[in-house]
Design a protein around this nucleic acid. Structure first.
Length: 441
RNA sequence: GUGCCUUUAGCUCAAUCGGCAGAGCGCCUGUCUGUGGAACAGGAGGUUGCGGGAUCGUGCCCCGCAAGGCACCCCA
């Protein structure tokens, strides 16, 4: 240190550095998600990380307390985006004349929440969203579910379930059971914990929110039923026949479930689960959540229809639906099960050189790069070849080329497989072909 | 924002009742000026998370802070 007080190197709670091995894995996952999104015709989008606070607030409900907010240098009240859905609504409202509707976009980017960290939960984390704005059709919701299932399958998740519910249907169930409409959000929150705290726990929680116990039990009877979606919905149609709006919610779900098979979503990947409510206040219709059981990190993705969000900016309603995958949680699952290769380096071949072969080695490295390989040319010709190979092996580089004087003299180089230790000498003009044989993929 | 647990070498951990901070692995050097991983020999590496207090004396006791984890809240 050149004078002065030494600073402490540290990062904020819930924020992390991503070292190369981590970045390589994250990049692989993101690439696969992007491929699925684009295969479905979703267009890329990015937005500022900071927005006017007014843009961000008002629709996240209680979650606003987790929002990073501050006053910028110009005295503006601003916040770090809390999700990618609200910025999308803002974009749709601002750029409606530049977009063709239904507008399908994907957005892979970091968001910030001042939550308490634990496994798979950070203050800065990445969401991978795919949304459709400008379509009220259940076909849009079906495609969102299909994209979600395909994306999770694309990174090899062995077991996941997409639970499907409906916000307004849940509200109707509440009304039928005698839960006042203004208690709806308490109802959502309590019911959502069914699998966690059990029936009695949910009843206790609802009673605590001034919902009559009899109503609470009635809600649970209707919500906890399991079985084929068609028969469950039919049963509910009977129970809710008096409740205004239930017919529409029920028919939306029927349409959705009817469409899913045609969209190629495997039957064992989704189920109707009316106990699913989801916390975000802006959902207005079908809601989805993807969960895994190992490791125990709960949901890896959430989704739903939010028909009023764009209207909050535009004054006229624009229906929209979409889904969001949590990159960090999916990374946890991928690592836990070893679903994708965990390479420590992007380099495919190391070039070891001697003081007398620096130029020849550099030239060969250039040629190999032009041939499409990721090449790590040694910068230490004075170190022994042993050291150079050792370093390459430790970095996890699978192959090495040794450019020595004797080989060069006869127009050859040595090619070594650093994993097996096998080595051969190959003519200079055959190196690329030999490398291609050696390297995986 | 709340409660509980944890924090000792790069990593995993040990250290009796409060009494000289250690091991394994890893790392570096050498055996070895052109072939890594092995073996052998040697070596470096510590403000015991940070700050304060009590004590003749603390890694160990007390207080505060920070970070990580678990649970709550909420959520990806």
């Amino acid at each position: 240190m050149a004078g002065g007080t030494q600073r402490t190197a540290r990062v904020l709670k819930g924020f992390r550095d991503y070292l190369p091995e981590q970045m390589i894995l994250r990049g692989r996952i993101i690439r696969r998600f992007r491929e699925v999104f684009e295969r479905h015709g979703f267009e890329p989008l990015d937005t500022p990380t900071i927005e006017y606070l007014e843009v961000l607030t008002g629709k996240a409900g209680e979650n606003e307390k987790l929002m990073y907010r501050f006053t910028d240098h110009g005295g503006r009240e601003v916040g770090l985006r809390y999700d990618l859905t609200v910025p999308l609504a803002r974009v749709v409202a601002m750029h409606q004349n530049d977009l063709a509707f239904p507008f399908k976009r994907y957005h892979i980017a970091p968001v910030w929440r001042a939550d308490n960290p634990q496994r798979g939960r950070f203050r800065e984390f990445w969401q991978c969203d795919a949304d459709i704005a400008g379509s009220a059709s259940m076909l849009a919701d079906a495609e969102v579910v299909a994209v979600m299932a395909e994306a999770l399958a694309a990174v090899g998740l062995p077991e996941f379930t997409i639970r499907i519910s409906h916000r307004r249907l849940l509200e109707c169930i509440g009304l039928a059971a005698g839960v006042p409409a203004e208690r709806a959000s308490s109802l959502y929150r309590a019911v959502d914990k069914l699998d966690k705290i059990g029936r009695d726990g949910v009843v206790r929680e609802m009673v605590a929110y001034e919902i009559p116990e009899a109503s609470a039990r009635r809600v649970l009877d209707l919500v906890a039923a399991t079985g084929a979606p068609e028969s469950l919905l039919a049963a509910l149609a009977y129970e809710l026949s008096e409740v205004q709006g239930s017919e529409e919610a029920l028919s939306e779900l029927s349409e959705l479930f009817a469409a899913l098979p045609a969209f190629g979503v495997p039957e064992d990947r989704y189920l109707l689960d009316l106990a699913l409510a989801r916390g975000l206040d802006y959902y207005t219709g079908p809601v989805f959540e993807a969960t895994v059981t190992e490791p125990k990190i709960g949901s890896v993705g959430g989704a739903g229809r939010y028909d009023d969000l764009v209207g909050g900016f535009l004054g006229r309603p624009v229906p929209a639906t979409g889904m969001s995958l949590g990159l960090e949680r999916i990374v946890e699952v991928v690592q836990e099960h070893g679903l994708l290769p965990a390479d420590r380096t992007v380099a495919q071949v190391a070039v070891a050189i001697f003081p007398a072969t620096v130029a020849a080695g550099a030239r060969l490295a250039s040629e190999m790069r032009a041939a499409g390989f990721n090449v790590d040319l040694s910068l230490q010709p004075n170190r022994s070849v042993g050291d150079q190979l050792k370093l390459a092996g430790r970095q996890g580089i699978p192959a090495a080329i040794i450019v020595g004087e004797s080989e060069i003299a006869e127009g050859r180089v040595s090619l070594k497989d650093l994993r097996s230790g096998d080595q051969e000498t190959v003519p200079r003009d055959k190196v690329a072909a030999a490398l291609r044989r050696l390297l995986p993929g």
